[in-house]
Each structure stands twice: as C-alpha cells, then as structure tokens.
Amino acid sequence: MEDRTSRVDPKLLELLVCPLTKGRLSYHAADNELISEKARLAYPIRDGIPIMLISEARKIED
C-alpha cells in the first residue's frame, strides 16, 4: 500500500523549478526526490512537500 503523504501533486511538479538554475526538475520516485540535471542536485520530498532549498539538496556524483 502506497503512502499518499509521500506523493507530490503532479500539477505542483509542473510549476517547480530548480532554485539555482531555474531549470526543469524531474521526479525520481525511487528516492522520492526532485532532480536538477543542470545543477547536479537532488531536492528531497518530505511528507509530500518538496524541500526546495539548495542547502538541503544532495549533490549528484558522477
């Protein structure tokens, strides 16, 4: 059974952009993160709320 609180509204995802690059984000369901390929950052989603702070983002390593 899927936890509905961890899901993000798809309409919200369409509106969100990376705060650093202002670029598009992609949703990575397995890690429950929003990914900015351009900035190489992964923004966490906690309790269904995207945490759009650069200081909270995880750096994506090669």
Rank of each mutant, 00 (worst) to 15 (best):
I35K: 04
I45M: 03
R40D: 13
L34I: 07
D31V: 15
C18H: 05
V17H: 11
D31W: 10
P44C: 13
M52C: 01
V17P: 14
L16M: 14
L15F: 07
D47L: 06
K38P: 13
I54K: 11
Y43W: 01
P19A: 11
R46G: 05
Y27H: 05
P19K: 06
S36L: 01
S36K: 04
E37K: 09
Y27F: 08
K22D: 04
L34V: 08
L25F: 12
G48V: 08
R46P: 10
M52N: 01
A29Y: 13
M52F: 00
L41A: 06
S26F: 08
A42M: 06
D31H: 13
P50D: 03
G48P: 15
E37M: 06
N32I: 07
P19R: 05
D47C: 00
S26R: 13
P19E: 07
D47V: 01
S26Q: 13
I54L: 14
L20I: 01
L25S: 03
K38D: 15
N32F: 04
K38G: 14
S36C: 09
I49W: 12
A42L: 07
P44H: 07
I45L: 06
A39S: 09
L41Q: 03
L16K: 08
I35D: 03
I35L: 07
E33C: 03
R40E: 12
D47M: 09
S36D: 03
G48R: 12
A42W: 08
L41R: 04
A29N: 10
N32M: 01
I51P: 09
H28Y: 08
A30P: 15
L41C: 07
A39C: 04
D47E: 09
C18N: 10
P44G: 06
K22G: 14
S36M: 00
V17T: 15
P44R: 02
I49N: 01
D47P: 07
L41P: 10
I35Q: 03
P44E: 12
A29E: 14
T21E: 14
R46K: 08
T21D: 13
Y27I: 04
T21Q: 08
I45Y: 05
A29H: 07
V17R: 15
I35T: 11
L41T: 02
L15K: 09
M52G: 05
L41E: 09
I35P: 11
G48T: 09
I49G: 03
G48E: 13
E37V: 02
S26H: 11
L25N: 03
G23S: 14
L53M: 06
S36E: 01
I51L: 15
D47I: 07
P19C: 05
G23W: 03
H28M: 11
A42K: 05
P50E: 08
P50V: 14
R24H: 11
G48W: 15
A42C: 06
D31Y: 13
Y43T: 00
I35M: 08
A39K: 00
K22M: 04
A39E: 11
I35R: 04
H28F: 14
